[in-house]
Nucleic acid binder design. Structure first.
Length: 617
DNA sequence: TACCTGACTTAGGAGCGGAGTG
DNA sequence: CACTCCGCTCCTAAGTCAGGTA
């Protein structure tokens, strides 16, 4: 996808040190204008929520008996998953055409045709791979006669199906309030019935209680399987997991479950195997649940333990850069990247099954370029590869001489497509890490570096610009972790709108200024006329108002531009120990609602409960 | 040891609704 | 009142990692 290619050209200076925040200071010096603060104060954050009442007394829950090894719960009862509605056949006046002729499709073929028709506005349907995959799978759903007739996708006319879909979407948008309310209430009833479970005496929200509806597979990037049919899941495909002695959920009328099991060493309530990739899908609890909360807390505790031995580990891998064993040297360089650049581990992937993306251990020679000297720095490594979700990682990083020499060595006599770390894989790396500290894996470094960066930045930044400081720190972490987003579809348009608004205001300002000058002149003529004096005041105000509005809009434009391709949410939700933010809020007397929305507060309820102002990550 | 798979976390995008604005 | 914009929720793909198996 074209949208996957961004250029976040961040150059960082590493010198001889390891810590990621170098990146951060760069970002800070570059990104912001001081006056943005005023603006941010004005827009604030969304809605202030009513005072937060935690669902849990976490301090108390923490005292609840811990179960023996591997046991996740003692009691689990739920209603099973909610299934999507059955397919509704096309009305008689909507036709599919092949080669110009109306063809009445069988129900199965018609349903799949509609999946495609609904996506006609999407870029996917212009892609060769998508079209071919779709056509292949669609033909499998056809009857023999249909398959004999329909042999060429380009002769298919889905126009009427597409138009029907567009009409439906429009109609839904145009619905009146009452009808919308009816639908909303019906949805709420489904949530009430299926959206909760009982787990060890607590009523918990389920995260995804709905079975994924059928459709065409939408992989990310150049996915070789894009367009394949994602089949409708039947109760007969679903495994139910619940507690012995609980009420077993009823399958839909006329159906049975694939299996009912009672496994309390796992956290899922139901699972099925998805047909495109053959992987398992699960129904699990909401992040606000005790089970997930405890796990989250554990994750950050492991990262905090890393803090206490990270110096030792860094020393160790610096030593290993000189190792006689090639595998140890490769491990050391990989670890250096993971630590300093917050790269992901990079498991091997089956070729041809997924888009071609890499992480640290799976980097290939073609993904880095070495420069003895570049832009005033020695030993620069240029990274350019597609990471998770086909998000481009582009970075030019000065590294130590020793790392640089090793990289040269690793690249000797290799083709661009060869593995950079040919002796290394994530298993080996993680095995080594866990020997250095129990529970340590590659991804802990991301959590650790993200959280410590937030904490340091918050400490460094002045208290005067509270909220702005927080956002800056958050943004620094997002840059570190390479959390990007596609610029909103309407980005250029809305940017242009904003610019033209600014232009209009500028003209108004010019006008207002000249009117003011005129008014002032008149006053000079008849100095004591109170009406004229009032006019001058009015004109002054008008000028001032214009200037303020221009300033505000310019800040808005800058802010929007800076955030164009940076996503803050991912790090906030997954990498930043919430206790850092909560303690900061308390110390700075910033209401928590300014930082976390409702579901974030729910997710971090455990941290809200336990965090004192003196918390240090 | 390599390989496979299950379980769980991390990820960006779509779509919706409500607030702000003219 | 219509329209735009933006944050939130939902959705599900795509990672990580460990444990079992050949």
């Amino acid at each position: 996808m074209a949208t996957c290619y961004f250029n976040l050209s961040v150059t960082i200076k590493l010198n001889h040190c390891h810590v990621a925040p170098f990146l951060v200071s760069f970002v800070f010096s570059k990104l912001y204008l001081e006056f943005m603060f005023n603006f941010l104060l004005q827009i604030q954050f969304a809605v202030a929520m009513p005072s937060f009442a935690s669902l849990w007394n976490w301090a108390c829950l923490w005292e609840e008996a811990k179960y023996e090894d591997g046991v996740k719960w003692k009691f689990l009862e739920h209603k099973g998953p909610h299934f999507p509605p059955e397919y509704q056949p096309l009305p008689d006046n909507v036709h599919f055409y092949y080669n110009g002729n109306i063809v009445k499709l069988s129900l199965a073929a018609e349903e799949v045709a509609l999946f495609y028709a609904q996506m006609l506005d999407h870029e996917y349907t212009t892609k060769e791979v998508f079209r071919n995959n779709f056509f292949k799978d669609w033909r499998k759903e056809m009857t023999l006669e249909e398959r004999m007739l329909i042999t060429d996708l380009s002769k298919c006319d889905f126009g009427e199906l597409h138009a029907m879909h567009v009409e439906k979407v429009e109609a839904r948008k145009a619905m009146n309030k009452e009808d919308k309310l009816v639908i909303k209430e019906a949805n709420q009833r489904i949530v009430d019935e299926y959206g909760f479970c009982m787990l060890d005496n607590h009523r918990e929200r389920i995260g995804n209680f709905k079975i994924e509806p059928p459709g065409l597979f939408r992989g990310r990037g150049e996915h070789p399987k894009q367009g394949y049919l994602k089949k409708r899941i039947q109760p007969e495909d679903v495994i139910i997991n619940c507690g012995k002695g609980s009420r077993v959920p009823e399958p839909p009328a006329g159906h049975r479950w694939k299996e009912v099991r009672y496994d309390n060493t796992v956290t899922w309530l139901a699972s099925w195997t998805e047909n495109v990739q053959g992987s398992c899908k699960y129904i699990m609890l909401n992040p606000s649940s005790k089970l997930k909360g405890e796990k989250d807390w554990e994750k950050y505790e492991v990262a905090r333990r890393l803090k206490s031995c990270v110096d030792r580990i860094r020393l160790q891998y610096q030593q290993d850069l000189k190792s006689k064993q090639m595998v140890n040297r490769q491990r050391a360089v990989a670890l250096y990247f993971i630590d300093v650049l917050a790269l992901r581990a990079g498991n091997e992937k089956e070729e041809g099954e997924t888009a071609d993306t890499v992480g640290c251990c799976s980097l290939r020679v073609e993904h880095i370029t070495l420069y003895d000297r570049l832009e005033g720095s020695d030993c620069v490594v240029e990274f350019d590869f597609l990471g998770k979700d086909c998000i481009r990682y582009y970075n030019k990083v000065p590294v130590t001489k020793r790392v640089f020499k090793n990289l040269k060595l690793f690249m000797e006599n290799k083709e661009p497509g060869d593995d950079l770390f040919d002796r290394l894989n994530t298993g080996l790396l993680n095995k080594h890490l866990s020997s250095l500290m129990p529970g340590l894996t590659a991804k802990v470094f991301r959590t650790y570096n993200a959280s410590i960066t937030l904490q340091e930045q918050l400490r460094k930044l002045t208290a005067v610009t509270k909220l702005l400081s927080y956002n800056r720190a958050n943004r620094a972490v997002a840059v570190l972790c390479n959390h990007q987003r596609a610029p909103p579809k309407t980005f250029d348009q809305s940017m242009a709108n904003l610019q033209s608004k600014i232009e209009v205001r500028r003209e108004q300002l010019t006008l207002a200024k000249s009117e003011l000058t005129l008014a002032k002149k008149e006053v000079k003529g008849h100095c004591s006329d109170s009406k004229l004096l009032a006019l001058v005041e009015r004109k002054k105000k008008a000028v001032q108002r214009c200037e303020e509005q221009i300033m505000k809009m310019e800040v808005q434009a800058t802010d929007r531009e800076e955030n164009k391709q940076i996503a803050l949410g991912t790090s906030k939700l997954n990498y930043l120990d919430p206790r850092i933010s909560i303690a900061w809020c308390k110390n700075m007397e910033v209401p928590l609602e300014k930082i976390y929305n409702k579901s974030q507060r729910d997710k971090f309820a455990w941290a809200v409960d336990m965090t004192q102002t003196d918390f240090i990550f």
